[in-house]
C-alpha cells in the first residue's frame, strides 16, 4: 500500500451531502476484473453527459462543464472537500479504488459512511473528519482563490491552509501507523513473516506431506 505522510495538493469542493458509492462509481463498472482503471469512471454520471459503458474509451465523451472536477482550475485535484455522510450506500471497495486511481489522496468531510471510511484505509486513502464550521471555511476559501492547495500532515494530524491556518483532526493510532508506514493487512501480516516461517518449519517436520504437493 502507498505510504501517506505529508501531502500537498490542489483541493476541489464537491458541494453535496450523502454522496453514495454508486455516485462515486456506478454499478456497470463493477464487472471489471481489475481494481485499477476506475479513475476514468469516477463520478461517471456527474462527470459526463452520456451514459458510461464498461471498457469504453472515455476521452471522446461529452463532459459536463458544470461538474467541479471538469473545471480547468481544479485539474490535478488530489484533495477532495465533501459534505456529510460521504461514501454511503453499497460496501463496494471499487469506490476508494476509483478515487485513488483518479489521483485523490485524501477526502475531507464533516462525516463519512463507516464501511467507506474503513475501505479508504485499506487502500492508502486518508479520510479526514473536520467539524462542520471548518469544512465550511475550506469550501469558502477554495472558491475564493484559484490554485488553492491544502497540505495534510498526517504525523502531526493537521490540515494546513495556504495562509498557514492549522486544523487538527483525529485518527485512530493503529490506522495512522499503518498509513505512515504503508502497511495494509498484508503488509501487517508480513511483519510476522518470521512467525509464519517458523510455523512452516515446525509443520513441515510434523506433516511433510502438506508441502511441495501441488504441481505437475
Amino acid at each position: 500500500m502507498k505510504k501517506f505522510n505529508q501531502h500537498t495538493g490542489i483541493a476541489a469542493p464537491l458541494d453535496r451531502a450523502n454522496v453514495d458509492t454508486d455516485m462515486i462509481i456506478p454499478k456497470q463498472f463493477l464487472k471489471s476484473i481489475k481494481r485499477s482503471g476506475f479513475g476514468k469512471n469516477l463520478f461517471d454520471e456527474l462527470r459526463y453527459l452520456d451514459e458510461g459503458q464498461p471498457d469504453q474509451d472515455c476521452s471522446g465523451r461529452p463532459l459536463n462543464p458544470d461538474f467541479v472536477l471538469n473545471q480547468p482550475r481544479y485539474q490535478g485535484t488530489s484533495v477532495l472537500l465533501a459534505r456529510e455522510n460521504f461514501g454511503c450506500g453499497s460496501s463496494r471497495e471499487h469506490a476508494p479504488w476509483a478515487l485513488d486511481d483518479f489521483g485523490i489522496r485524501s477526502v475531507i468531510a464533516p462525516s463519512f459512511a463507516e464501511i467507506f471510511y474503513n475501505n479508504c484505509f485499506k487502500n492508502g486513502l486518508l479520510p479526514i473528519v473536520l467539524d462542520e464550521a471548518q469544512v465550511d471555511q475550506l469550501f469558502e476559501e477554495v472558491a475564493a482563490s484559484e490554485g488553492y492547495q491544502l497540505t495534510i500532515d498526517l504525523e502531526r494530524q493537521l490540515v494546513v491552509t495556504p495562509t498557514d491556518t492549522e486544523m487538527a483532526f483525529d485518527i485512530d493510532g493503529f490506522r495512522k501507523h499503518c498509513l505512515l508506514n504503508g502497511l495494509d493487512d498484508i503488509g501487517l501480516t508480513l511483519q510476522h513473516a518470521d512467525d509464519i516461517k517458523a510455523y512452516e518449519q515446525r509443520r513441515r517436520a510434523e506433516a511433510p506431506w502438506l508441502f511441495d504437493a501441488i504441481h505437475e
Binding site: I33, K34, R35, S36, I214
Partner: peptide, 22 residues
C-alpha cells in the same frame, strides 16, 4: 480471483507458496 492477482502485482508481491494453490 482477478482483483486479488492484480492487487499482488500492484504491490509488487509474489505468492508466498505456489504449491499450495490449485
Amino acid at each position: 480471483s482477478p482483483q486479488a492477482f492484480e492487487g499482488l502485482r500492484l504491490a509488487g508481491r509474489q505468492p508466498w507458496r505456489i504449491d499450495a494453490n490449485i
